[in-house]
Amino acid sequence: MTTITITLSDDRLRQLEAIAARFQIAPEELARVGIEELLNRPDEAFQRAIDTVLKKNAELYRRLA
């Protein structure tokens, strides 16, 4: 596992700490979870393409089911 260092303004650090406190986790863990979520999220253009195909072919999928 690799460690990285990021720079945050004092205001952003306070916000991160406050949100982490609400979830009762360390600020570092909250930041890691946020990054994981971002990396695991499908690309928006790809998601729009999927939605378009599903909508366009909804009737076909209904008949095949």
Rank of each mutant, 00 (worst) to 15 (best):
E59C: 01
A21F: 08
L16N: 00
A65L: 13
D43R: 03
Y61I: 15
P27A: 05
Y61A: 15
K56F: 09
D43W: 05
K55F: 08
D51V: 00
D43L: 04
R63F: 12
R48G: 00
I25R: 11
D43M: 04
I19M: 04
T52K: 13
D11E: 06
L8E: 11
S9F: 03
D11F: 09
E37G: 09
R62M: 10
A26E: 15
L13Q: 13
R12C: 01
T7Q: 06
L64A: 14
E29T: 14
Y61G: 03
A65Q: 14
L8M: 11
R48F: 01
E17M: 06
T3W: 10
T7K: 11
L64N: 06
D11C: 03
A58M: 09
I6T: 09
N57W: 14
E37M: 13
Q15V: 08
T2F: 08
T3I: 12
L8T: 07
T5P: 00
L13E: 10
G34Y: 08
R48H: 11
I25S: 05
T52V: 05
Q24E: 15
L30P: 07
E29V: 12
A26W: 05
E29Y: 05
E37Y: 11
R22P: 01
T7D: 03
F46Q: 05
I50N: 00
Y61Q: 05
G34W: 07
L39M: 14
R41Y: 08
L54K: 02
D10T: 13
I6E: 07
Y61C: 03
A21L: 08
R14T: 05
Q15F: 10
P27V: 06
R62C: 04
L8N: 09
K56P: 00
L64H: 03
A21D: 11
L60V: 13
Q24R: 06
L64K: 12
R41Q: 14
Q24A: 04
N57V: 02
I25C: 12
N57C: 04
P27M: 06
V33D: 10
E59S: 05
D11L: 00
E17T: 12
T2P: 00
S9H: 02
I19T: 08
K56H: 12
R22W: 07
S9D: 15
A26D: 14
E28T: 14
Y61M: 11
L8C: 07
T2S: 09
A58Q: 14
N57Q: 11
E28P: 03
S9P: 02
A58S: 15
N57L: 04
F46R: 10
E28L: 07
L39T: 10
A21C: 03
Y61F: 15
I35M: 13
V53L: 14
A45P: 01
P27R: 06
I35Y: 10
E44P: 10
R63W: 12
T52R: 15
L16E: 00
E44I: 07
P42G: 07
F46I: 04
E36W: 11
I25W: 10
T5Q: 09
L38C: 07
S9Q: 09
D51K: 08
I50P: 02
A26H: 13
E17S: 11
D51M: 01
S9C: 07
L30V: 06
E28R: 13
A18K: 11
N40W: 08
A31P: 07
I4L: 04
L60T: 13
A45H: 02
V53F: 11
Q47L: 15
N57M: 02
A21P: 02
D43T: 04
A26Y: 08
